[in-house]
Structure formats: C-alpha cells, structure tokens
C-alpha cells in the first residue's frame, strides 16, 4: 500500500497543490464504489466532499490518505506532506486504560505546554486527565482535532467532523475548522453528508455519488441541478441558510474570483 506513494512523483504535476488525485476508481467485489474521481487540495483551502450515504465519501478520503488502494487512477501527494487525520468515529476499548493526555501523545512528540495549547484551541483543555472512554462524541472529535493539530499538519483530513455534535453545535465546529485553517494555513479536506452547514466554511465543494456530480464554490453547487436532484430543496423549515447572491467572491488575497461551476456531469 505504501509503495503506492513511494513512486517518484513529478513535482510539476502538483503545481503547488498539497494533493492531487486524477481518475480515482474503486471496485470492490464487482461493485463500483468510486468512478473516475478527480480531486485536488490547495494549501489554505477547504475542500469539502458531500454526498448521500453510500456515495463513497469516506472511501475516497481513505484513498487520499493512503489507507486504501484504488483500482485505478493516480494520486500525487506533496513529498513530506504531514497529515492530521480525524477518523469518523473512534471508540477506544474499555480494556485500555488511557487518559486524554496519553492519547494525544500517541501521535508523536507532545510537549506539555504545546499539548495544553492545542486542547485549549479546540476548547477541551479541561479533559486532559480524563480517561478517553469517558468523553462524549463531540468532545472526542475535538480531541482528535487537537491531536491532528499537534502534528502541525500541512493538511487536515476530517471525516464528518460534526458527527455526534448537536445541531446547534455543528455550525460552531465548522467555524472552528475555518479558524484553524486561517491560523495554521493548512489545507483541509473534509467529508460531510450535507451542504447547508459547511457552506460558510468551504472554499470548494465536491458533490459525490460514486462519481463527481458537480464541483465548485458552495453557492454555485447548491444551485446546481445535479446537486438539487441528489438532495432536493431539503432545507428544513426554520433553518435559515445563509446564501449570498453575489456574483463573485474574494480569494485569500482579497482578489475577486468569479463564481463558476467548474465541471458538470449528469448524475
């Protein structure tokens, strides 16, 4: 599996991207899980993979991380890329006595003050000496995020970061991710099962249903017929979705970027 990444990689093909995947396909016992998926992650940008259950989002993320080998396609990663990973759900068996402090230190060097700093940054500093089994799902997500930050990552890979967090807290999670991106300047690739909440955090959205249905800026994707066909106009009543109807956005340098749906295929 690791040989996959050790192949000499032409640097020019990355063009400053952290990660670039082309034509990723995966077949598992004859079933098509992913088909010809292109995806790239730029430094300082948040790329969000959305799609219905069973769309292959988590599988795609695992392939990007080298945890799973695709049947076809090529994947380039910037040499020496440090990744902070937050898996979808992590359950530590009761038989393992382990505190949050010790758990954090498993990822690598963890100086005491550094440890406190990252935990404070995600708002769970008070859990430092607790057994990991005693923290709630939402707290565990934050601890995993802190463990990822401890590595000073170039890329954060987050699988359903708001899972196990109640609706009121979910927006907060995405704001936190956006803030961390600003502070660390890292790229972010994350998986989410719906668009509404990730809207204000994402720079680009990939709508996945085995293949890429549409991709582009979140505002553009939310208006895309392919997206609407998958999700409908499924905004629950009472939830105000913040939509800009600007015809442009600003990129990191403040320059105007035209909104455009980059690619569009039939779903």
């Amino acid at each position: 599996m690791f040989e996959f990444f050790r192949k000499p990689q032409p640097k020019t093909a990355l063009q400053g991207r952290l990660l670039d995947a082309r034509g990723i396909s995966l077949q598992l016992s004859g079933r098509r899980v992913l088909e010809d998926v292109d995806l790239s992650v730029e430094p300082g940008q948040i790329t969000t993979i959305i799609g219905p259950n069973g769309a292959g989002k988590t599988t795609l993320l695992r392939i990007l991380l080298g945890l799973q080998t695709p049947s076809a396609g090529r994947l380039l990663r910037r040499p020496g890329l440090r990744v902070g990973y937050m898996p979808q759900r992590i359950v530590v068996d009761d038989v393992m006595p382990i505190t949050v402090r010790r758990f954090m230190a498993l990822g690598g060097r963890a100086p005491r003050d550094e440890l406190r700093r990252v935990l404070a940054e995600v708002g769970v500093e008070h859990l430092l000496e607790q057994p990991v089994q005693s923290v709630s799902g939402g707290e565990m997500q934050r601890i995993l995020l802190a463990r990822a930050l401890l590595r000073r990552p170039h890329l954060l890979a987050l699988d359903e970061p708001a899972q196990g967090v109640d609706v009121s807290g979910q927006g907060e999670v995405f704001q936190l991710i956006a803030a961390l991106r600003d502070r660390y300047g890292c790229g972010v690739v994350m998986v989410s099962h719906e668009l509404h909440l990730v809207m204000e955090a994402a720079d680009s959205v990939i709508c996945l249903n085995q293949h890429v249905c549409c991709t582009g800026r979140p505002e553009a994707v939310s208006q895309d017929p392919a997206y609407l066909r998958l999700f409908g106009h499924s905004v629950p009543p009472g939830v105000a979705v913040y939509t800009h109807h600007h015809d442009h956005r600003h990129d990191l340098h403040g320059d105007v970027v035209k909104d455009a749906v980059k690619e569009h295929e039939e779903c």
């Binding site: 690791f2 991380l65 945890l67 990973y85 898996p87 498993l106 690598g108």
Partner: peptide
Amino acid sequence: WRPLLAVTVHEDLARVEGVR
C-alpha cells in the same frame, strides 16, 4: 512501545501519522 500502542489504539490513525 509507542508505535505499537498507537496501532493498538487506532490503526488507521497511526498509519496516517506515519507508523509502519
């Protein structure tokens, strides 16, 4: 010790963090 512990707690996480 440390890599084995990391793998025991969560194999995927350890792998992404560079444990062989």
